[in-house]
Write a protein that binds this DNA or RNA. Sequence first.
RNA 1: GCCAGAGUAGCUCAGCUGGUAGAGCAGCUGAUUUGUAAUCAGCUGGUCGGGGGUUCGAGUCCCUUCUCUGGCUCCA
Length: 644
Amino acid sequence: MVNIQFPDGAVRSYELGITPMAVAKGISEGLAKKVIAASIDGVVSDASTPINKDAALKLITWDDADGKSTFWHSTAHLLAEAVEATFPGVKFWVGPAIDRGFYYDMDLGGKTISEEELSNLEKKMGELAKQNNIFIRKQISKDDAIAYFAEKGDEYKLDLLQGLTDGEISFYTQGAFTDLCRGPHIPHTGLIKAIKLTSIAGAYWKGDEKNKQLTRVYGVSFPNQKELDEHILMLEEAKKRDHRKLGKELGIFTFDDNIGPGLPLWMPNGTVIIEELERLAKETETAAGYKRVVTPHIAKESLYITSGHLPYYQESMYPPMELEGVKYYLKAMNCPHHHKIFSAENRSYRELPLRLAEYGTCYRYEQSGELFGLMRVRCLHMNDAHIYCSKEDFANEFRAVNDMYIKYFNIFGIDKYVMRLSLHDPVKLGQKYINEPELWLETEEMVRQVLIESNIPFVEVPDEGAFYGPKIDVQIWSAIGREFTLATNQVDFAQGRRFGLQFTNRDNQPEVPLIIHRAPLGTHERFIGFLLEHYAGKFPLWLSPVQVKILPISDKFNDYAFSVNKQLLEAGIRSEVDDRSEKIGKKIRDTELMRVPYMLVIGEKEQTEGCVSVRRQGKGDAGQCSVSEILSTLTSENKNRQSI
RNA sequence: GCCAGAGUAGCUCAGCUGGUAGAGCAGCUGAUUUGUAAUCAGCUGGUCGGGGGUUCGAGUCCCUUCUCUGGCUCCA
């Protein structure tokens, strides 16, 4: 007998070797039908795994995250079965579950999968699923496994096997398909009721661009059609808030073939947002003791030799222009320029911390395939600043920067993000990372403490730091689910020395400052791209390109409309009159679609009484009020940067 | 940069097997003077991304190039 403990704490005895599926059946047939896998003492396993000792058991269904990933991983096997039937001789690499679905990487031996074949594969998978084929696990010796794939001529699986330990190797078979796999898998293919193959892509083997490119097929599956329909609907909804679509509709930015890829043109509406963000940054930074600087967009090659960006970063920079035998580069970062401002004068410890801020324009020659709307561009405006400080000041300065992030994020209501603390790898000191083992540990600990004290959830990622120090990145996701770093906060104990930066300390000795690179608002490009999706185009008043639209009921009230408009403009409100001879319904519709936060409807009654009828975007009629009342509402909401 | 798709009016799209381009919206003009998400009518607008080729004839077939999209690699 074995004693099995359930998640609610209850313990029941079963005969030795009972499977989770049998346990489920003992509870109810309905439950058994839903069981996908089981967690046995915390290890996710097949529902058919015999339990041979006392254990804690959790039955896993579709509702569990582990259930979904098991389900999707099994669907990946189903895909492989369908592909093998369609493309004999195909070789497979790996087919994991991902956040939303699964993929399988394969070598089709030069063949390609067309869109049509993709939907055929989808149908084929549906047929195979209906066969209710059981996923059969088989423990196999390493030699036998190698022999099997050598026979098959599959160098990818042989490569995988090299990294595996004999005794821990298993095969899974469903229907006509057998794969090297650790598992677990769902009981049988019949559970997979709805399948969608979403896209075909190229993916480098082992993620290395020097390797051969395999064909990757992405897909997603569900235990019923309804959930698939909902999933597709959700994707369509997400597309509606895609910043590329909204940016066009709202007249925020545009691209032009003759300007160049990745070089956004900011239209008047977008420029309003840029200027409001800069105003916020300037107010905040001035209050925090920053000093503003302005630097040129280009610099001589020698600057980037000093900084070490050449030749390592060269391929990400626009090629140089040569004048009188000297090469000039468009700047890809502002740091070296700021360092030169630091070193322009003799610095005393009394001047520190010195905080130099600039919305710096940078140019990066990103690979063409990486460009993505506003999120990844070649001309970017960075909310940059460099803080030069002594080691003693460091923790305070870093904390202050962190507080600034939090302050900003509160203003924008940004809560779906992950703070990522990127650390060094001691093995790579002197190669990927500057060889200062103690400074690394010391600054990493300081940064960690700041994060813990400020109560911000964060994840630590080894071997992701910058060359010159640890960093914190704020990770966000675009509407279609792509991940980006929105903002960054980096420690730098290398560039100071490279640039020969120093200040005279209290002991009248020269000392190299520590440098903090920080960009809490990231770049205008990515930040506004993010905000467009974050707000779904419905910016709060202070960021709205047009804050108020005045809508006269008919031409007769245009004069009064313009007189109200004049008062608003004089109070600093971005207001416009819609004086077209359209019906009020049409004017409202157009203004709603442009996401203008306030509409003032004006007709006979309002003109006579000298008031306005207020309509809030998305909320409808909000009643009448006097011009001075609406003016003070707008002014205070605007000034306080109120969110909606 | 690589793999796979796409590019027709400002926008969203139609155009069967090759026979010298269409709709809705937007824009303009006029009529209408309107009370909380689309008033009506007329008009303008495209060398079908660019270049080359096949053909009597190319939006449609082929090559090439540019741009975009989905991924990979890479990053704010």
